[in-house]
Simulated assay, not measured.
Amino acid sequence: MSIRHLFLKYILILFSSFVLISCSDDSDNDAIVIDNPLNDPYDGIPAGNPDGSYPVPAEASLEDVSNPTTVVGDGTPESCTGEVFIDAVAGGGKIVFNCGSDPVTITLNKPAKIFNDTTPEIVIDGGGLITLSGNNETRILYMNTCDPDQIWTTDHCDNQDTPRLTVQNITFINGNSTSETAYDGGGAIWVRGGRFKVVNCRFFNNTCASTGPDVGGGAIRVFSQYNDQPVFIVNSTFGGKENYGNHGSNGGAISSIGVSWTIINSLFSHNTAIGNGGNPSQAGTPGGGSGGAIYNDGNTMTLKLLGSHIEFNQVNDFGSAIFFVSNDHSGNIVIDESVIQNNIGGSWYPSYPGISAHDDTDIIVTNSSVTE
């Protein structure tokens, strides 16, 4: 695209930003913003790494929603309220949207919470048109197999195979979990137990607690997946442009304890770990500040970064791109067909800039570039 065309597109976006239709339902405090599809405020930030072409296994692919359990909306934007969405999530099953042909932002005033006794498979598919917003006040989505308020369904809640949650074809913006105390971190999404998968999603400006040695996940925080199977993140973007990044004390984009991740054809940029003092926190500090994009802590776990790009993330302490600490030294990192570069801050692993891990952590890098 020529400089002239870029300039004209920029002027058009500035002009069209004044053309915005807004609706609100005062009865439940849910706001709806309808954006012209040509003037999507996130236009130019696609889901996923545009240079990623790594093969995606079947289990990490999109789920079939051709026969949905629940359709949110009746074809109009006004029908797609936060209350309707929250009720749909509480009912489980496969959830799709019918809010009209234009992109719609649904703003929540409380998290949508999954109940563990509804359906084994829970799929939320935005069809590429839906943005869910926490309005800088609330987390957006919550699943916890060990939370009695969400119904215990086994006597081994930390290792059960359901629910299996997939979010796909959705944008998550302005999630904020800073008011959460019992289940902190995870500005947009917090998950424990079952299985979790993200496909074709975008995460912008989500935030969690700003300090603390072991709290994080500006966008996502995950615990204890069934039989230690990985969380899949596929063709998704976290940040993608300056002023669109996610941030939290640790793991500006994602954070976990005792969880493996397989990240395929995804982009992490402009996310920030804003805590300081590390983990354990140094004397006189609140702790945190590690893992600009990714924060992994635990024992036997694997981080796979495949066909993905990590750039322009920042930390105050360690691991400007990735912080990975396997406490019993049994975890490993696999990086293939990926690029890690231009991340800002410290690290302690001598061979790979931007990665902080124990010196004996097995890090396998193939067909990739890991540089300052």
Rank of each mutant, 00 (worst) to 15 (best):
S224E: 09
T366Q: 15
G217L: 01
N243Q: 05
V104I: 14
G307D: 04
F15N: 12
V167S: 00
V71L: 09
T178Y: 00
Q229Y: 01
Y183V: 07
A60H: 04
A60V: 02
Q168W: 02
A209I: 00
V259K: 02
N116A: 03
V123E: 09
L62R: 13
W190A: 05
N271F: 03
G193I: 02
A253G: 12
A112C: 11
Q341F: 03
S236K: 02
A182V: 11
R164C: 01
E63I: 07
I32Y: 03
P280Q: 06
S210Q: 10
E337Q: 15
N367D: 14
K110Y: 11
I34T: 11
E78R: 12
S249R: 03
N109Y: 12
G134W: 08
I310P: 09
A112E: 11
P280G: 07
G218L: 03
N342L: 14
T371M: 12
S236V: 03
V198S: 00
F18P: 00
S24G: 14
N276L: 08
G248E: 03
D214V: 02
P230F: 00
T70S: 13
P37Q: 12
G331M: 06
G134S: 08
A58Y: 10
P353G: 10
M1K: 12
N279C: 09
C146N: 15
W190Y: 15
N299M: 05
G100H: 11
R192A: 10
I13C: 06
F232V: 00
I173M: 08
I254T: 12
